[in-house]
């Protein structure tokens, strides 16, 4: 589904360009859940941004193939229409735009791009109610403005709700667990577990092993200074949690040696 080859990218800042991704290689197949872990500043969120087409990043080398297509050639909205979804680390508040209107516009634009008819209001409401249940969202909240006045936990649940509505093929969860208490974490994880299938895939970016108790990954990758320095099964997350920085420093020495 997704093949990342030697991806290098820099961020444009007021103090000049800064190389963040220094050669990422990763292959994600349908039906898989990949966890990407690593300390702050290792480039995890940058990877998510580059994959979804956020402005401000320059890809300097490498390529990303999504279903055989050059992903980096597409606009953010085209990527979304092709089935890529980013659950934001910091979901954006949009005053004046209701959740319902926002999602209806999104769904119908995605449908239009595929030459499909728009979803009827009746069907939309039915699907919306169904999916809201999945992440325990009060349907009344959905007539409110996007994320405005939502608590941190509500915003994260709203991200997973949007994911459920849009039914993407590849979902990238950028630190969806940050700021969640254990109950909210369970709700979010439960939502993801119900949505996963052998046709879709998830990339779960997280600092902590905690989330991975509930969303069990097939693969765990450790990112450090813009590279994936180690990959393994779900037990790698536990190892990382136990040994922390020491573990990483060990890898670093190995990498440099």
């Amino acid at each position: 589904m997704l093949i990342i080859k030697n991806l290098k990218a820099k961020i444009k800042t007021s103090e000049g360009d800064k190389q963040i991704l220094k050669g990422i290689n990763l292959t994600v197949n349908a039906g898989e859940i990949h966890a990407i872990m690593g300390p702050n500043g290792s480039g995890k969120s940058t990877l998510a941004s580059v994959l979804t087409g956020r402005e401000g990043y320059d890809v300097t080398e490498g390529e990303v193939l999504y279903d055989g297509k050059d992903l980096l050639d597409l606009d953010p909205e085209e990527r979304a229409r092709e089935g890529i979804f980013l659950a934001f680390q910091y979901p954006i508040e949009i005053p004046g735009v209701s959740n319902v209107n926002f999602l209806k516009t999104a769904i119908n634009e995605i449908r239009k791009s595929k030459g499909e008819e728009p979803m009827s209001s009746v069907e939309f409401l039915k699907v919306m109610k169904e999916k809201a249940k999945l992440v325990d969202i009060d349907p009344a909240m959905l007539s409110r403005y996007v994320n405005v006045g939502f608590s941190g936990g509500e915003k994260k649940r709203n991200e997973i709700f949007q994911l459920a509505m849009l039914e993407p093929k590849l979902s990238i969860l950028d630190e969806t667990d940050s700021g969640l208490d254990i109950d909210a974490l369970k709700i979010v994880a439960n939502g993801v577990n119900q949505l996963k299938s052998d046709k879709n895939a998830f990339i779960v970016i997280t600092h902590y092993q905690r989330l991975l108790n509930y969303i069990v990954p097939d693969f765990v990758h450790v990112m450090y200074e813009g590279r994936i320095v180690k990959s393994g099964g779900k037990e790698l997350a536990l190892e990382l949690e136990e040994n922390g920085y020491e573990f990483i420093n060990g890898i670093k020495e190995n990498a440099e040696a």
Binding site: T52, E55, E77, I94, F102, T105, A106, E109, L166
Partner: peptide, 16 residues
Amino acid sequence: FYIKSRGIGDKNAKAL
């Protein structure tokens, strides 16, 4: 960016 990342094109994102 948030709006576009949900599949909504530039024109409709601006209009929203």
